[in-house]
Design a protein around this nucleic acid. Structure first.
Length: 537
DNA sequence: ATTAGGG
DNA sequence: CCCTAAT
C-alpha cells in the first residue's frame, strides 16, 4: 500500500514533467489506477524475475501483444531476407507500408475488431511512451540488480519479448527518471521506434549507442520536425481518446484475451482469425467504435507512419527507393485518412502533408486509380523478397460486412468501391539490391536506350519489371547516386549514420552507377553529345 | 510497341 | 509507379 502510494506519487510527478501524453492519463481515473497498479506490481517483481513481468504483460495486456505483433511483422519481413541491408531496409519500409495497409484494410473489412485493436494499440502506446523514456535512463543510472537481471532477460528473450521487455523495464524504472526531460523522452521514443524496425539484430547494447545517434540526429535540422511532430501528435490525440480508451480498455481487460488471441495478432491474420476477432470484439462493438474507430485505427497507422517518416525524412532526397517508399507511405496514409474527420488526425495529416505536398497530392490522385493486385506474389519468390503480397489481409474486399461505421457509410462505400476496382497502386515492388545490380549490368551492356532488351535478357523472370520500370529505376538511381555524393560532401558523418540507419545502397553500386552515368547520360546522348539512336532489332 | 519525359 | 506524347 505504502509503496503503491509512493509510486503513484512518483508517477504523478513524472507525468507532470513529461509531456501531455501522460496528463491525459491522469484524468482517466480508472485507467490511471489500473496502470499504477501494474506499476506497483512490477516493481518488486522486476529485480528478481524480469521474465514474469513480461509474462504478466503478455497475458494482461493483449494490446501489447498486438503492438508487438505489429513490430514483429515489420521486423519479420526483413528477417526473412538473407539478401542484405538493402532488402532489410526495404523490408522494414515495406513492412510499414503493409502495416498501414493492413490498418486500412482492417478498417474496411472489419471495423469492430480493427477499431478495438487499434484502440488498444493506442492505449498501449500511451503507456509505453510514457514509460519508455525511463527505460534507458533507469538502466544507466541504476546499474544495480535490475540491470543485472534485465540484461539476460533482454537478450535471452529477444526473440519474442523485445517489445514487452522494454516496456516492462521501463515501467519498473519509471520513477527513476523523473528528471528525464521532454527531450529525452522524445529521443527515446524515436529510438524505440527505430528499434521496432530492427529488433532482430539490435542488441541491448544498442540501446545506448542508438540513443546517442538519435540525439545526434536531433541536431540535424532534418530531424527536428519529427520530434515536434510526434509530441504534438500525441498530445492532441491523447485527450481526445482518453475517455473512450478507459471504457474500452476496462472492457477488454475483463475479457483477458488469451495468448492464442495474442498470437493471432502477431501472425498474419487469416479469415478465420479475423472472424474470431470479430466475435470477440462484438460485445464492445455497440460500446463505441463507429466514428471513433476510425480515429483509432488511423491513429495507429499514423503513429507508425510518423515514425517511419522521421527516420527517413532525412533520407528522403537521398535515394529514390526511399523516396518512392515514402511517397507510397504517405499517399497511403493520406488516402487512408481521407475518410476520417478527426481534428487530431487532420493535424497529423497536415503535418505529413506539409512535409511533402507533392506526395500528398499524389496520394489522392493514385487512390482512385485502378489496380489489379494480382499475381504479384507469384513472381515474388525470385528475389527472396518479403514483398507486399498482403498476406495478412483478407483477400476480398467484396464481402464488406455491414457498415459498422455509422457516419462514414457513404465514405466507406465509396472507398470500398474504389478499392475494389481501383485503389491499391499497381504492383509497387521494391527494388532489391540484386535487381539493381542486374539493372546496372544490363545498362552497362546495352546502354540506356534498350530497356526492352534489358528487360528481356536480364529480367525475364521478373514479370513485374517492365522496361519502363527499369528505365524509371535507372533514372532514380542516377538521381540517387548524385544526391548521395552530394550529401556525403556536406556532412559525411551524418550521412554515414543515416545511411547506416536506412540506406544501404552500397558504395560500389553507387560507383558503378556514376560510371555508367557518364557513359550513358540518361537521355540517349553520348558524352560527346551524339544522339544514339538504335533501331531495335 | 517502345521510349522519353513529366507527374 | 503511372500517364502522355512522340517515334
Amino acid at each position: 500500500m505504502d509503496r503503491e502510494a509512493n509510486l503513484n506519487k512518483n508517477s504523478a510527478n513524472m507525468k507532470c514533467q513529461r509531456v501531455k501524453v501522460d496528463e491525459s492519463f491522469v484524468p482517466s481515473l480508472d485507467e490511471a489506477v489500473e496502470v499504477q497498479h501494474l506499476l506497483a506490481e512490477h516493481k518488486p517483481d522486476h529485480a528478481s524475475v524480469d521474465g514474469d513481468a513480461w509474462k504478466h504483460l503478455d497475458i494482461e495486456d493483449f494490446s501489447y501483444g498486438f503492438e508487438y505483433g505489429l513490430k514483429r511483422n515489420c521486423g519479420g519481413l526483413d528477417c526473412n531476407n538473407a539478401q542484405g541491408q538493402e532488402e532489410l531496409e526495404f523490408g522494414v519500409l515495406d513492412g510499414l507500408l503493409d502495416e498501414v495497409d493492413e490498418v486500412d484494410d482492417i478498417h474496411a473489412a472489419n471495423d469492430i475488431s480493427g477499431a478495438c485493436k487499434d484502440f488498444l494499440l493506442d492505449v498501449e502506446l500511451a503507456e509505453k511512451i510514457s514509460d519508455l523514456d525511463c527505460a534507458p535512463h533507469g538502466r544507466l543510472h541504476l546499474g544495480n540488480t535490475s540491470s543485472e537481471s534485465q540484461s539476460p532477460g533482454f537478450s535471452g528473450s529477444s526473440n519474442d519479448t523485445h517489445g514487452l521487455s522494454e516496456s516492462s523495464t521501463a515501467t519498473i524504472l519509471g520513477s527513476e527518471c523523473k528528471n528525464s526531460s521532454v527531450e529525452n523522452k522524445m529521443v527515446k521514443c524515436e529510438l524505440n521506434d527505430s528499434f521496432g524496425d530492427k529488433w532482430d539484430y539490435h542488441a541491448q547494447e544498442n540501446v545506448f549507442t542508438t540513443s546517442r545517434d538519435v540525439e545526434n540526429l536531433d541536431e540535424l535540422d532534418d530531424a527536428k520536425p519529427l520530434e515536434s511532430g510526434i509530441s504534438s501528435d500525441d498530445n492532441e490525440k491523447k485527450p481526445v481518446q482518453t475517455s473512450k480508451m478507459s471504457t474500452l480498455l476496462r472492457q477488454k481487460r475483463l475479457r483477458k484475451p488469451t495468448k492464442r488471441y495474442i498470437e493471432e495478432f502477431s501472425v498474419p491474420k487469416s479469415k478465420h482469425a479475423m472472424e474470431r476477432q470479430k466475435i470477440l470484439a462484438v460485445d464492445s462493438k455497440d460500446k463505441c467504435l463507429t466514428i471513433r474507430s476510425h480515429n483509432e485505427l488511423h491513429h495507429g497507422g499514423a503513429l507508425t507512419l510518423i515514425k517511419e517518416e522521421s527516420l527517413s525524412e532525412t533520407i528522403t532526397q537521398e535515394t529514390l527507393d526511399d523516396d518512392e517508399k515514402l511517397s507510397d507511405l504517405k499517399s497511403k496514409c493520406i488516402s487512408g485518412r481521407q475518410k476520417i474527420s478527426s481534428p487530431a488526425l487532420k493535424h497529423k495529416c497536415l503535418k505529413i502533408g506539409s512535409r511533402n505536398e507533392l506526395h500528398h497530392l499524389r496520394g489522392f490522385k493514385s487512390v482512385p486509380r485502378e489496380e489489379s493486385f494480382t499475381g504479384i506474389s507469384t513472381q515474388a519468390s525470385f528475389e527472396s523478397r518479403p514483398r507486399r503480397g498482403r498476406p495478412k489481409k483478407r483477400p476480398v474486399p467484396e464481402s464488406d460486412d455491414e457498415h459498422n461505421a455509422s457516419e462514414s457509410e457513404d465514405d466507406r462505400a465509396k472507398r470500398r468501391k474504389s478499392k475494389k476496382s481501383a485503389d491499391r497502386r499497381k504492383h509497387q515492388r521494391m527494388w532489391t539490391l540484386s535487381e539493381v545490380m542486374k539493372l546496372i549490368d544490363g545498362i552497362a551492356q546495352y546502354g540506356t536506350g534498350r530497356w526492352t532488351d534489358i528487360k528481356k535478357l536480364l529480367f525475364s523472370s521478373y514479370a513485374y519489371r517492365t522496361p519502363v520500370d527499369l528505365r524509371d529505376k535507372w533514372r532514380n538511381l542516377l538521381r540517387a547516386s548524385s544526391v548521395q555524393k552530394q550529401k556525403l560532401k556536406q556532412n559525411k558523418e551524418v550521412e554515414q549514420k543515416l545511411k547506416h540507419a536506412m540506406r544501404p545502397l552500397p558504395k560500389s553500386v553507387i560507383h558503378r552507377i556514376r560510371e555508367l552515368a557518364t557513359v550513358h547520360p540518361y537521355p540517349r546522348f553520348t558524352p560527346g553529345g551524339r544522339y544514339i539512336r538504335r533501331k531495335k532489332n
